[in-house]
Computed example of a mutant assay.
Amino acid sequence: MSRLRHILTRAWIRRGLLAWALRPISLCFEGLVTCRLWLYRQGALQPQPLKVPVIVIGNVMVGGVGKTPVVIALVQHLQERGICVGVLSRGYGRVSRDLREVHPTSRAEDAGDEPLLISRACGVPVWVGANRIEAGKSLLEHYPKTQVLVCDDGLQHLPLARDIELCVFDERGIGNGWMLPAGPLREPWPRAANSSIDRFELSSASSPISGRFQILRELADFAVRADGTRRPFPMGFANPVQALAGIAKPQVFFSMLQDLGLTLTHTQAMPDHANLHGVSIDASLGELLCTEKDAVKLWADHPGVWAVPLITTLPAELLEALDACLDRRLSSHHGLKIT
């Protein structure tokens, strides 16, 4: 499976022989998706609104692009403004299938690693469910003072009405511009303009991409263990160390550690959202560093591993534009006021 994924990922960079061979299937898929989008634009299918403004943060590319750190950064920004926020998520990778609230003490296999990370990092109500509408209704029922809902993923979850969309891209941009399986796109991009939705495009690529707000990402200056113990990073760690990452691009995390002067004796690159129960850690190879997303799963069995938070900074001009869009909605048809 990993070899097939690697082959397809390479094919999606350009329109080569494999991409052209898969193009007929891609056109069929594109036709179905386009038809669905058209039905929503024409009003034949109606998205269902919730009682408060909804911000959806998602992507059109297959694979991780770093949406969850953007969710955390945005939620923390709204909290600083005094806005009561709730978060919705599908809870990808969890073994449970029900609708449920996520608590900081929840298990990753029940809640999903990303919703659990958001709950611990932000301390806001987090609800997971395949049906984001029902999840939103349940959250609002239990937390009626919630003023804004942020949906982690769900750009293609069209039944959920949204007020603002943030589409996140990485260094791949839109790849070869074709839809699955000939390309990496989940839907044709760009979408047709919608006057009722404010849309922003963000890029986590190291080089700015025209027309997209640039996200700044860097490792924190501290690492943390399961018991809350903090240690200065990287100067608080003796070289060498080992590292583990179960994210979309593990090598990016490893490279960030090396760029800070750390020597890695051993690295374990795991699939994104991988179940980390039973992972073997050899203490003789040095202390283990991992991402926060890995830590919420590892700490159950290995409370001594160190998580290095990834600090995501959203540009001021994006936050200013987003705040203006949100304030209009908070004070108008949703009938809410910012306290």
Rank of each mutant, 00 (worst) to 15 (best):
R107W: 13
S106M: 07
G278C: 07
C290S: 05
F29N: 14
G82F: 03
A269G: 02
I118M: 11
F200A: 01
V62N: 04
P125Q: 00
L310K: 14
A182H: 03
A205Q: 04
A205D: 05
I55T: 04
F253A: 09
A11S: 12
T263D: 07
A248Y: 12
D170G: 01
R172V: 09
R225E: 15
D294F: 10
E134C: 02
L88H: 06
K297Q: 15
Q156V: 02
Q42A: 15
V52F: 05
W38Y: 11
R100K: 07
I118D: 10
A248N: 11
W178M: 10
P271I: 05
T265I: 00
A223D: 08
C325H: 06
Q48P: 02
L336I: 09
L18Q: 10
A111W: 05
A161D: 05
L74I: 10
C122T: 11
R120E: 14
Q79C: 08
L45G: 12
E134H: 06
V279E: 15
F222P: 00
I247R: 11
I133S: 02
L78T: 00
K293I: 01
M235G: 13
E292H: 15
Q251N: 07
P115T: 14
I247L: 15
G43K: 10
L32P: 06
W299K: 04
P250G: 03
C325R: 14
E109T: 02
H334E: 00
P309Y: 15
L155I: 08
L330I: 02
R191Q: 13
I83E: 00
N194G: 11
V124H: 03
G58Q: 09
G246M: 06
T146K: 02
G43F: 12
L17E: 10
A11E: 03
R199P: 06
C35M: 13
G82K: 01
H273A: 13
N59P: 09
L216W: 08
Q76C: 07
A307K: 10
L314N: 07
A161C: 03
P125N: 04
R172A: 15
P240M: 06
V52Y: 06
G31K: 12
F237E: 00
L50N: 04
E287T: 06
R230P: 05
Q242M: 13
V224I: 15
I197S: 13
I164P: 00
